[in-house]
Computed example of a mutant assay.
Amino acid sequence: MSREFTYTITDPVGIHARPAGKLVKIAQQFESDITLDHSGSTADAKHILGVMSLGIGKGDLLKVSIAGADEDKAAEELEAFFKNDL
């Protein structure tokens, strides 16, 4: 089974280097596979170059998919990160 959620980015400059680094750092704490989907392009949330290559800006819709042994905890922490930081 897997978990997923969508989030509309509210940060005025989108996912730039600092929040991308923070996102990757959170994702790397989990065993689960974490994938970001933006307008049909996907990236592994554990690799900063992939996250940055999505070019996510303010108002963009991002789908986060999480699959693995600790997916519930990962989803909880990532959702909190998006709500508080992006």
Rank of each mutant, 00 (worst) to 15 (best):
F81M: 10
L86G: 01
E31M: 03
L54P: 04
A75S: 14
G59P: 07
K46L: 09
L23G: 09
S39Q: 14
R18F: 04
M52R: 08
K46H: 08
L49F: 15
T42K: 13
G21F: 10
I9C: 03
L86A: 00
M1A: 11
D85I: 13
F81P: 07
G55Q: 04
S53E: 03
Q29L: 13
A17I: 12
L78G: 09
I26E: 09
K22Q: 15
D33W: 00
H16P: 01
E79Y: 11
I26S: 02
K58I: 02
D85R: 14
A43V: 04
T35I: 15
G55I: 06
G21C: 07
G50F: 08
K25P: 01
V51N: 07
A80P: 00
L49T: 10
L62K: 04
M1G: 14
N84S: 15
G68Q: 04
L62M: 10
L36Y: 05
I56Y: 03
F82K: 11
A27C: 12
L61C: 01
I15E: 08
F5R: 08
L23D: 05
F5C: 08
D60L: 04
D60N: 14
D11N: 14
D72H: 13
I9R: 09
G59I: 04
E4M: 13
M1K: 09
G59H: 07
R18S: 05
E71V: 02
A27W: 04
L61G: 01
L86Y: 13
F30K: 02
V13E: 15
V13L: 15
D60P: 00
A20C: 12
A74N: 07
P19M: 10
R3L: 14
A80H: 11
S32D: 09
D72T: 14
A27N: 02
F82T: 06
H38F: 10
E4T: 13
A27K: 03
E71R: 03
D44T: 07
D37H: 05
T6A: 10
L78S: 06
L54H: 02
L61E: 15
T10Q: 14
A69F: 01
F30L: 04
S65W: 02
S2R: 12
S2T: 10
G14T: 10
L62Q: 01
G59R: 07
K83L: 12
I48Y: 06
A74R: 07
A75T: 15
I26V: 15
M1S: 13
F81V: 04
A17Y: 11
T8M: 13
K25Y: 09
E4F: 13
I66N: 03
E71L: 02
I26L: 15
V13Q: 15
S53M: 11
A43W: 02
N84W: 00
A69M: 01
E76G: 09
S41C: 03
V24I: 09
K73M: 11
A67W: 00
H16I: 05
P19Q: 11
G59V: 02
I15A: 06
H16E: 06
I26C: 09
L78A: 09
S65M: 07
F81W: 14
F81H: 06
G40F: 05
L86T: 02
